[in-house]
Structures are given as C-alpha cells and as structure tokens.
Design a protein around this nucleic acid. Structure first.
Lengths: 105, 105
DNA sequence: AACCGTTATATCGGTAGCCGATATAATATA
DNA sequence: TATATTATATCGGCTACCGATATAACGGTT
C-alpha cells in the first residue's frame, strides 16, 4: 500500500522517454534535464530499462538505422505513473513545508 | 555527486523529529503526517534511526519516564538535509511539469 | 584499409535500504 | 494476575543503485 514511490533514476528515465530515445540517449538526456545533477550509472540505466519493460511502463520501438541503438518510449501506463508521482512529490513538499513552518525558524 | 536524495522513509522520520519523539511515536506520526499513506515497517524504522544517529542527522535525548521509550530529535544538520531535499523535490516537480507539458496532451 | 576515439549495450559483485516476520519485554488495563 | 498494547530489536530476503569491466559498432582520420 505505501510503496509506489519512484526512484529518482526511474522518474527521470520515464520523463526522458516522453520522446523516443535509446539507452545512451536517455543517459545524456537525464543529465541535461536535471541540470547535470543526476548521472545514471550504466548498471542503473540498463537494469531499470529491463524492469520498466517488464512492468509495461515503457515499450521498445522497432529497429533504427544504427544497428546498436534500441529505442524506447513511455507507455500510457508509464505516463500515469509519472502523474501519480507528481502528486506524491507535491504532497511531500506540502507536508514538509507545513512541518518546517510550524516548528519554525 | 548525484545521490543526496532522501528516501521517503527517512524524509518523514526527519520531519517527525522536528519534535521530540520515540521510535514508536515516529511510526504513528509518519502515518498521520502522510494521511495514512506511509506506514513504516519496524525494520525500516529502527534501521533508519541507527543510520541517522551515525550520520548525526538526529540525536538521542536523555532518559524519559517510561523506561522503554528512547526519544530522538533532529539536529541542525538534519534540518539542513530536509531543506536541501525540499529544493530537490521542487526541481523534480518543475522538470516533470515542464516535460509533461511540452509533450502534452 | 587500418586505426582509434566515441557511442552503445550488457553483465557482475558489492552495498544499502526496505519489508515482513519474529522475538522479547515493559506498561496499562481489565 | 492475566491480557492487550506499546515499544525496541534483529533477521533473512528482495530490490535498486553503483562502479568496473567487457564487448562491439560506428565515424573520422591517416
């Protein structure tokens, strides 16, 4: 019941896949998207891609020109997960601000 | 460089300890604080308390009336971590909203 | 064609955090 | 005194992340 929190890595991977991208492109996009703060390790990225495929939150697109590249895209379910995460994040901030103000300075 | 993200459990534990509380009180407070969404398992709670003590983000208060209860309180460092987390969370939301709007419907 | 740096995917072992179960004990209540 | 609740602690298992390493394809240069 509690645990539908997304990790930062998964969150940014899903955001990146609002456009079609291959793994390495996700890596670069996440770093840019987060103003250089979040750098995905290779193990994190390709591990997460596999679990997200299994969950059906992202899907693999058919072949590209470059035989190395495998492109992915977020699914409708994946988008719903991002929306739910945005709500959860907003709750964290609201609760955090409230508590910090009550016991303030 | 990337990883100063707090887990949801640690975040709510730190918020709870803006007031003096013992472990079990934290459990109840976190559940209430999160509108019943986050329920800490015992292993999570007492494990997190130990790592937070080691990091100096919380401190143990001297004895209470009830010989069972051990009370804790957030430290200045802990408060700084919560403030940093609030900024990180706000960035996640800002980035998320921007991306979701750009590729909108 | 041969070389080389970059791009790209994949796997592995280690570590940390969360969970649920279990154990144990002190306190409060009936 | 018996029982339920409160309270802390530990354990094994699972998942996620990390950094290192391996492998290969592509692009550009000579």
């Amino acid at each position: 019941m509690p645990n539908f929190a997304l990790t930062e890595a998964v969150y940014y991977i899903l955001l990146s896949l609002m456009q079609p991208l291959h793994g390495y492109g996700i890596m670069q996009n996440v770093e840019q998207l987060s103003n250089g703060r979040v750098r995905l390790a290779a193990g994190t990225l390709y591990g997460a891609i596999n679990t997200l495929l299994e969950k059906g939150w992202i899907t693999a697109l058919p072949g590209s020109t470059d035989s190395r590249k495998k492109e992915y895209l977020i699914t409708d379910i994946g988008k719903q997960m991002v929306q739910a995460e945005l709500i959860r994040l907003q709750e964290l901030i609201t609760n955090g601000n409230r508590i910090m103000e009550v016991h303030n300075q």
